[in-house]
Deep mutational scan, measured.
Amino acid sequence: MGFKLLSKLLVYLTASIMAIASPLAFSVDSSGEYPTVSEIPVGEVRLYQIADGVWSHIATQSFDGAVYPSNGLIVRDGDELLLIDTAWGAKNTAALLAEIEKQIGLPVTRAVSTHFHDDRVGGVDVLRAAGVATYASPSTRRLAEVEGNEIPTHSLEGLSSSGDAVRFGPVELFYPGAAHSTDNLIVYVPSASVLYGGCAIYELSRTSAGNVADADLAEWPTSIERIQQHYPEAQFVIPGHGLPGGLDLLKHTTNVVKAHTNRSVVE
């Protein structure tokens, strides 16, 4: 069995187990497998329904001669939608809004960016022009300005110390501490036991640490421990890039980060 097929099978099995364990909360999309990078042309966006009122959005972007996937989250909030992270750029984010209108038909009224990198804030200006209120932590807003990236308009308070959590509509926002970046936030959907790890969490097929220019490698494993301790009931975990899975993604990420750190020390 090929690795790609095995990865998709694991996603399907995880979703099936969740649907059985929580039949009222989960209505997993039966329309197909989780979209992969090879299936999404740059400039297009796919939506994948995880649970009743919960979707991931998947886009792709060219970077350094390669094409990478990027995940975000959409959560229903009454007759409105909360968006977590842009679709990595203005063109993708405009396509995301169009796809949401086509498939869901509810307005996106608020959006949260989970850290300051372009795959999370690139497209904020498109959201703002569409009347979406954009939010991020003060740290993310400051770092985005320093980096020359787009800056969300509103500040999220109460997320300055490791372990801080605040309720934001249908989700809980959690600051686990520094990891992929010093400002990275985690998003949890309690009604569906869905954990969105953003770039602080890796997919299972990833074996290298990737972009760690703004990471705190020493603190990252401790931050992941905080996530595990705060959300032990999480059933569906979405990484910032690639295929979702279960809580095993947290341990896998820790292993990859520690291996990278150990290699760096040896070198």
Rank of each mutant, 00 (worst) to 15 (best):
I224F: 03
Q103V: 12
P152G: 01
P35S: 14
D118S: 07
S38V: 07
Y202G: 05
P152M: 00
T114S: 07
T93E: 00
S38T: 10
Y188L: 01
V257C: 05
Q228C: 07
I40E: 14
P170W: 03
L24G: 10
P41R: 11
N255Q: 10
S161E: 14
K102V: 14
Y175A: 02
T207P: 12
Y202I: 15
I238D: 00
Q103M: 14
V54Y: 00
G163I: 06
H115I: 02
L97D: 00
G53H: 09
R167H: 10
G89T: 06
G240C: 01
G177E: 03
A19H: 06
R142H: 13
L10V: 12
I151L: 08
P170A: 12
D125E: 12
V266W: 11
V75M: 04
D77S: 08
V42I: 06
E225D: 14
V189M: 05
G32F: 15
G163S: 09
L250W: 01
S137D: 02
V146R: 13
D125T: 08
V124T: 08
I17H: 04
L247R: 14
C199D: 00
L185A: 03
V265K: 12
W220D: 01
Y135P: 00
E101A: 14
N211A: 13
A19T: 15
G2M: 05
D52H: 09
S191Q: 12
G65S: 10
P244I: 12
V189Q: 00
V257M: 06
L6E: 15
E80R: 07
A129K: 11
L96H: 03
D118M: 06
A87D: 00
K4G: 02
V45H: 03
I100A: 07
V256Y: 04
A213Q: 12
V132I: 11
R46N: 07
H252G: 01
V237E: 00
T86I: 05
R167P: 12
L250I: 07
P138R: 08
V132K: 04
A111I: 05
H180F: 01
V189P: 00
E39A: 14
G122Q: 09
L24W: 06
L13S: 12
G240P: 03
S191F: 14
V146Q: 13
A178S: 11
V132G: 01
D64L: 09
L204H: 11
T222L: 11
T253C: 01
G198M: 07
T114M: 05
R263E: 14
V124F: 04
S62G: 14
G158E: 09
S161V: 14
L13T: 13
L247N: 14
P35F: 08
H230T: 12
F236K: 08
N262C: 05
R226K: 08
T182W: 10
E150Q: 05
K4A: 04
A179C: 05
N255C: 06
A259N: 11
V108L: 08
V187F: 03
A87T: 03
H230M: 13
A209K: 10
G105K: 10
I100S: 03
V37F: 15
S161Q: 14
G148Q: 09
I20Q: 15
L83H: 00
R46C: 06
I201M: 07
E172R: 03
G177A: 03
K91Y: 10
L243Q: 15
S56V: 15
P69I: 15
V54S: 03
V121H: 03
R141M: 13
A21H: 15
V28G: 10
